[in-house]
Each structure stands twice: as structure tokens, then as C-alpha cells.
Design a protein around this nucleic acid. Structure first.
Lengths: 334, 334
DNA sequence: CTGTTAGCGCCTTCAT
DNA sequence: ATGAAGGCGCTAACAG
């Protein structure tokens, strides 16, 4: 790989001059400028970004920690939002997956930091609040996504999960449902799960429906888990006319289980999901769900990170998002 | 951020000694080693990876170009395979999306190269063969995924697309179908589309079924496109008892369109998809498809890249993959 | 075993 | 407008 030195030699100028034309940092005589440009082209010169970063103390990289890129469309959509604004700022994104595992998340953050990322955007599920809080004391700006960390409120871009399931239950109640099951994640430590559960309880309470633990079933939070959870629920033989899924994937799995048992959706059981992932428009029936505006959240998180990085005012960045019902075909009057 | 110098000062040793304990590159007196370790911890020292890369000429990064991370689960699954082996080699992955656009792909590759990636794994759809071929002459090893580039065969990890649709048609023929439509991508330049189309024609030929252009319908290669394409096909009023989708997404969209028209699947129309993306197990009916072993392809591509990087023998890496039928519920005897 | 030294490629004063 | 020189943080000889 050609270096600035090679270019300077070929163009018969000093390396400073070359640097000047690369960065447009000062006036250079047109002829010399031309010579440098030609030499650069001829040698196929690309400035070494490490050397640049080393001296300028700026890597132009934003580090992102996600759960996984392939556990579903969720993080992919978030990345779409993130990258859009990071791209626009002419910076690079470097992604690492924590796989929802404490050790790995820690390691990934460590790696991102070591790579001198200019800012970090973290979706941490497994790390405790204190550890995340401690990160705020290192000099690189940190933004947290989908999690509200006490003491770091102005750095958190998050969705009101409780409000989400609350909406879902309200919707079902308004359609006359009283026996509403909840199909949730078996990861009890998972904040989202706790909050969504809370919303579920709150919704019941609001409607004066007594809570029945028998109507709550948990499993791994994907399609297979949803299938399993509903299987489980059916075995308990507790009647229910509707269920709220922890997420769309579980809802889809649950629906496929019910259909296999010859139970009609939504005629016999109504279903509400959570997230509004793309494919649920193509399952039958089209899933009614609570929209998680994940792409927008990604955008705002990136925006916030960039603002912090530039020391710009970041007070007008929207931090708390509120979910919205998307009514399709999986809910019917009870 | 603390530097090696700070550590050396605090530990009362030279920077070389610090470097030695960091890299385990030589023996160090246990006491000094201890002192260094303590100092590192106290200062929360992290070696600057740019400085390391600058001097060692190794960035420990593998650059990856994908189409998009969120156009579906395809690239996400590929990343899963890639990252697994890159992780195991203790290297980092840096991903860029080309968004199936020529300019962007070019720019992304440029960026990856400038970041001094040790090797590149490219899924280029839009760039011409020659341009890709030219990349092989730069010193960083390059591997191509899902594309066979003449002259770079030993650097391509790809799937035999033609064989895939051929299998699909054979399967339908064996079930007695004779009027088989093909729902394909409207991107005529797209190699995959050409090859899959070829397989479709070959399959018909094999079975002695005359090709009918009226049975081929094209649109954007996602669910919405599949829906639209089938809508189109129906308007032509040409009878068909089955269709092969360019991919699962189109197949799913097509199915949803047929269902809306009151056409039973698979009773009236059988469907075969392509890819075997996760969610099609949760649509009704479960989609019969041709499995694209994308995760395995990712693994092998990464393996190949790593081998090239280390100058190791790479002759035993599997380059050409063959698709396999996955029979589920969307095909019925005609 | 340990410290000194010379760069890696680039940017940035500081003279000229 | 231009060049020389110092240094970013680190590794790798080279002496001791």
C-alpha cells in the first residue's frame, strides 16, 4: 500500500504538501496540487486510517453493541436507523453482538472501546445498571438503547414497554375479552419482560379483571418458544379467549400451535403481538400488534451519540418513545 | 485514555517491559510483571489498537460487504456464519452495506480497504466481474460470496442456483404438475435471477413441458413484490397449478395474494420457495422450499479468507454448495 | 531479563 | 506557499 511518502516523492513535493491536499487544510499551488493528485491516482493511494486516527485522536467510528443480528429482524431494523444517520455524518459503524450474554457483552464493549470508537451505542440486556453507569465516566460518549438506566436518563433512548402491553390489553378488553393470557419470555432478568408483564397486570387491573397466574406462560422468546408456551397453556385446561404475546415471534409461534390444535384465529382466540416485525403481515391472520418504532429509536440514538460527540446541544433529542397499536386481523369481538 | 507510557511510569519499568507483558512476547520478572499488571488495572489501560495496527501492519479486522442487514434474514444468517469463525480466530468483523447499488458497493469496498482490513469478504451484486477481478491484485486477500466470478473461481464461495430451481421444478413435476409458473425478481441484471430462471427452464425441458412466457411474472424480490407479481399473473388468466418463487419472501407474498383471492394452498395451487428463511415455518401452509445453506456458506467464506490471510493451504475449503429440497406442506399432488 | 532506540503513516506547528 | 521536524502509542530489534 502506497504511503504519503511515496506520493510526495513521485510528485516532487514534501509530505506536508501532500497532507495539505488530502485534507484541504491550506492553500497549495495549483500545479503542485495537480501533481499530487496525479501521483495519488497513479499509486492508488489511500490514507492509512490508523495513522490518521492515531494522530488526530478520532477514529470516525461509532461502536454499536446489539443482541444479535439474526435472532430476528429487530436489531437489523435498529441498525437501519442507526446507520442512516451515522452514514450521513460520514462516519463508520462497527457492530458487535453480545448475544444477550453478560460475558460477551462485557467483552464486546471492551473491544469497542479499545478500537477507539468515538462514541458507543449500547443495547445491553445482560449487564447490570451499575456497570453501564460506570461507562459514563470514561471519556467516550455512551448512549443506551431500549433501556432506562437510573442516573443516566439523558443518555437513554427507550420505549415505554409497560405502556405497550397496557395498550394491548386495553384493546382486547375493549373488544370484550376477559380471559386474556400472557405468553412471555422465560428470561426473568430481562427488563423488557418485566415491564411488559407489568403493563399486562395493569391492564387487567384497570378493567377489574382478577390476575390469574395460570394464564401466564413463558418460554424462549422466539417462534418455537411461543409454540411451546401455548402448548403448555393448553395442557393446563384454563379457558382463554385471547392472548398477548411478549413479541410477534412468540405470537406467531403460538398461533401456529393453536391452529395445529384446530383452534380458529381469531374466531376462537384473539391474539396481539408486540414489535410489528415485517413478516407478520404475511401470516394468516395478519397479526394485530403493538408497534415498536425501533428504526426511529435507532435514528435518535445515533443522533444523540453524534451530538454528544460534537459537544453540541442534545436536549431536544427525543428519548422516550411510546408504542402504538396496529390493528390488523387477529383480534375479534369476544 | 492511559497509554503504555503512563503504565510504565506507574510501574517503574520501561515501556518495553509493559509491551512484553501485554503481548506475552518475552519473559518478565514475576514482580515486575505483577507491578505492570497492577498499574494497567489501576489506570484502566487498554492498548490503542490503532497504534498496534500501525506498527504491526495487522488490523485484525475482516471487512464484509453485504447487500443489506435488514432486507430480510438472508444476510443476517450469513453474518452469523461469518462471525462465528472470525470470532474464533480472535478477529473483528466490520460490516458495510452496499444496498445492492453500484456506487455504494464501490464506496464501501474503498472504505473497507482504507480501514486496512486484513481480508475482505464481498457479497457484491451490482459491481461488474472485471472490477471485482481487479481487486484480487491488491495485496489484501479477497473472497467473494454467492457469486462465481470467472477467473477467480478459487476465491468464490457460492451456491448452484440453477440446480436449486431445477430441484424445485423436478419436485413439482414428480407430483404431477405441468402448469408451473415462475415468480421472479424484476432485476434482470441480477445473476441469481438469471441462474434460477435457467434452472426453471431446464426443469421444464427435462419434463418435456413447453416453456410459456405467460407463466413468468416478475417484481421486486420481497413479500410485497411477490404479492404484486401473482396479482399480475392472475390477471393474465393463464391456468397454473403451481408456482416456484424466486425466494421465500416472494412465495409468501404470492401465497397471501392467492389466499385473498380465495384460492386454496396447496389444494388449488402448490408453491415452492427458495432460501428456507426461518419464518416460513410459521406461515400457513408451511412452505416447501429449496434450502440455501447461507450460514454454512458464510462460515466457509470466512474460513477461506482466514486461510488466505495466514498463507495457509486453502484447497480443501468447500467452494460450491448444492441446494436441497425441504419438503413441508405447500405442495400437493396435482 | 531489561531499557534504549528507531520507526509504522500521518498531521501539525514552526520556520522559511 | 512550502518544507523540516516532532510526536501520536506502540512494537521490535539491539544492546547491555
Amino acid at each position: 500500500m502506497a504511503t504519503i511518502k511515496d506520493v510526495s516523492r513521485l510528485a516532487n513535493v514534501s509530505i506536508s504538501t501532500v497532507s495539505r491536499v488530502i485534507n484541504n487544510t491550506a492553500q497549495v499551488a495549483p500545479e503542485k496540487r495537480e501533481a499530487v493528485l496525479n501521483a495519488m491516482k497513479e499509486l492508488n493511494f489511500r490514507p492509512n486510517s490508523f495513522a490518521q486516527a492515531l494522530v488526530s485522536k478520532r477514529s470516525n467510528c461509532i461502536g454499536v453493541l446489539v443482541g444479535d443480528l439474526c435472532g430476528g429482524p429487530f436489531f437489523a431494523q435498529m441498525m437501519l436507523g442507526l446507520e442512516r444517520v451515522i452514514d450521513r455524518a460520514n462516519k463508520f459503524t462497527i457492530v458487535m453482538s453480545g448475544n444477550h450474554d453478560e460475558q460477551r457483552e462485557r467483552h464486546a464493549i471492551e473491544a469497542l472501546l479499545q478500537r477507539q470508537c468515538d462514541a458507543l451505542i449500547l443495547h445491553s440486556k445482560a449487564l447490570p445498571d451499575e456497570e453501564l453507569l460506570a461507562l459514563m465516566h470514561c471519556e467516550t460518549p455512551v448512549v443506551f438503547v431500549n433501556r432506562l438506566i437510573p442516573g443516566a436518563e439523558e443518555r437513554c433512548v427507550w420505549l415505554d414497554n409497560k405502556e405497550g402491553t397496557l395498550c394491548a390489553v386495553r384493546h382486547l378488553v375493549s373488544m370484550g375479552h376477559k380471559q386474556i393470557a400472557f405468553v412471555t419470555s422465560d428470561d426473568a432478568e430481562f427488563t423488557d419482560a418485566k415491564q411488559r408483564f407489568e403493563g399486562y397486570r395493569l391492564g387487567l387491573e384497570e378493567a377489574g379483571i382478577p390476575f390469574d397466574a395460570q394464564l401466564v406462560t413463558a418460554a424462549y422468546a422466539d417462534e418455537v418458544g411461543g409454540h411451546r408456551a401455548i402448548e403448555n397453556l393448553l395442557q393446563r385446561n384454563v379457558p382463554f379467549t385471547a392472548f398477548v404475546g411478549f413479541n410477534d415471534a412468540m405470537a406467531a409461534g403460538g398461533i401456529s400451535c393453536l391452529l395445529e390444535h384446530g383452534i380458529q384465529i381469531p374466531e376462537q382466540v384473539s391474539v396481539v403481538g408486540f414489535d410489528d416485525i415485517p413478516y407478520i403481515r404475511f401470516i394468516r391472520p395478519k397479526l394485530t400488534t403493538v408497534k415498536y418504532p425501533i428504526e426511529a429509536i435507532g435514528e435518535h440514538a445515533a443522533e444523540l451519540a453524534l451530538r454528544l460527540l460534537d459537544g453540541k446541544n442534545s436536549e431536544d433529542v427525543l428519548l422516550k418513545f411510546t408504542p402504538e397499536m396496529v390493528v390488523r386481523d387477529s383480534v375479534k369481538q369476544a
